[in-house]
Design a protein around this nucleic acid. Structure first.
Length: 201
DNA sequence: CCCTGATTCGC
DNA sequence: GCGAATCAGG
């Protein structure tokens, strides 16, 4: 494959959007992430900083969102299991601030947290983008439904269901580099906080 | 081990 | 210019 105009444009676009080199490579096809990175450098856009003088936030690690995939604007409906969907409102901004939010599969009871496991905080009302939620709904269907003992460093530790019930499991999908959750769950766990914090304070 | 981008260097 | 191999980090 060669770097045609179109391909370069897509590359630029995706890179600018903060997509990872591997994602871009995957999208383009026929090239490796190395090729993408190499091209990026040659194009001189190694730094994704916006253009302003100030150095923009480098937070480029971990892909925030999926690619341009045809996604049905399906809205998350009711959950099968005890997966309670938190309230959603407002859309999120882009700044990947890592504001911790809580898992939604919130057991009303004291969550049984595995000792030593970096499990998430308690449930609390928070804003989660509809997209993130939709994604979660999707992936939870594919969840490996692991038990506590089956969790590993690379399995999503997002709890689903009520720990007090038999219907309880951990997502178990491959985690995002570093994070304790899979991409989808990272999406709802770490929200790009942006909405105004007016809500009675 | 999975992943990320950055650099090097033969082609 | 290209990109695999390598490096440096999370």
């Amino acid at each position: 494959m060669s770097w045609t105009d179109e391909r370069v444009e897509l590359l630029k676009k995706m890179w600018t959007e903060g997509q990872s080199a591997s994602q871009i490579a995957k999208e383009l096809g026929g090239v490796t992430r190395n090729a993408v990175i190499g091209k990026v450098h040659r194009l001189g856009l190694s730094n994704r900083s916006g253009g302003g003088g100030a150095a923009a936030a480098p937070a480029a690690s971990a892909a925030p969102k999926a690619e341009a995939k045809p996604k049905p604007a399906a809205k998350p409906a009711a959950q099968p299991a005890a997966k309670a969907a938190p309230e959603v409102e407002e859309e999120a901004d882009d700044e990947p601030r890592t504001t911790s939010a809580a898992p939604a599969g919130a057991p009303s009871r004291k969550a049984i947290v595995p000792a030593g496991q970096p499990l998430p905080p308690q449930p609390s009302a928070n804003e989660i983008s509809p997209e993130a939620l939709a994604k979660v709904n999707e992936i939870e269907k594919k969840a490996k439904k692991l038990t506590l003992m089956e969790l590993t460093e690379r399995t999503c530790k997002w709890p689903v269901g009520d720990p007090a019930t038999e219907k309880f499991w951990f997502c178990g999908l491959p985690v995002q580099a570093g994070k304790p959750y899979c991409e989808a769950h990272v999406g709802v766990a770490f929200q790009p906080m942006s909405s105004r914090r007016d809500r009675r304070r």
